[in-house]
Computed example of a mutant assay.
Amino acid sequence: MNLSHAPLRLAIGAFVLNSGISKLTLEGQAAEGLHGMAAGAVPPLRRLDAPTFARLLAGTEIAIGSALLLPVVPSALVGAGLLGLGGGLMRVYWATPGLRRQGSVRPTEPGTAIAKDSWLVGAGLTLILDDLLHRGRRLKRRRHR
């Protein structure tokens, strides 16, 4: 892990880990609401029941959050996890009626809570690109020795 990635990984890792832990106990309407939004954006998720979906999402967030906090996990790998998580949230944002203003990419008041997660996509891409570019520079230096 590049030391410059530490602040980003710590902040996002703690947030995502906490989000996953909070979802471990989701039941009833809360689990159904979460599942309903996700299944509306990704129809194959309808095959899962709401509690199972909530547990899987919780586990995914716990895994990504933990990986971000562990410096031995390569930044490109945790960046890919963030990109997947953020991409899924952006899919929900684009597919769910009422989250965006009519004919616009701008969020409505209810859509802001999901639209703000676009930072996960940006952070994921940043970690991937920086890690790959940094790795490429190290390989070039080794060849020139």
Rank of each mutant, 00 (worst) to 15 (best):
L70H: 02
Y93V: 01
D49P: 02
G87E: 09
R47S: 14
A41Y: 15
G88M: 07
A80S: 13
E61K: 03
A113T: 14
R101W: 02
P51T: 09
P51A: 04
T112L: 09
P44H: 11
E61G: 02
G103A: 07
R47E: 13
L70F: 07
G40W: 10
S104L: 04
P71K: 01
P51Q: 08
P110F: 04
L83D: 06
T96E: 15
A95M: 00
P110K: 01
K116G: 12
A54I: 03
P97G: 05
P71L: 04
T60H: 02
G59M: 11
V72Y: 09
I64A: 06
G59K: 10
L70V: 11
L77W: 12
D117Y: 10
K116M: 09
L82S: 02
T108N: 09
A58L: 10
P43Q: 15
L69I: 11
G86H: 05
S104C: 02
D49S: 04
A58M: 10
P107S: 05
A58E: 14
G84C: 12
G86V: 07
S75W: 07
A41R: 02
K116Y: 00
L120D: 07
P97I: 03
L77K: 00
F53H: 08
D117L: 10
L82T: 03
T60F: 10
R47T: 15
A95W: 01
A80D: 11
V78R: 04
A80Q: 10
L70D: 12
L120R: 06
G65K: 00
D117P: 09
G65L: 03
R46K: 15
G40P: 07
A58P: 07
I62S: 03
P97W: 05
R46V: 06
D49H: 09
P51F: 10
S104K: 01
M90A: 12
A39F: 12
L70A: 09
R101A: 03
P51H: 07
G111S: 00
A41W: 13
L48K: 04
A67M: 09
T52C: 01
G65D: 09
P107H: 06
L83H: 01
F53Q: 04
T96D: 14
L89F: 09
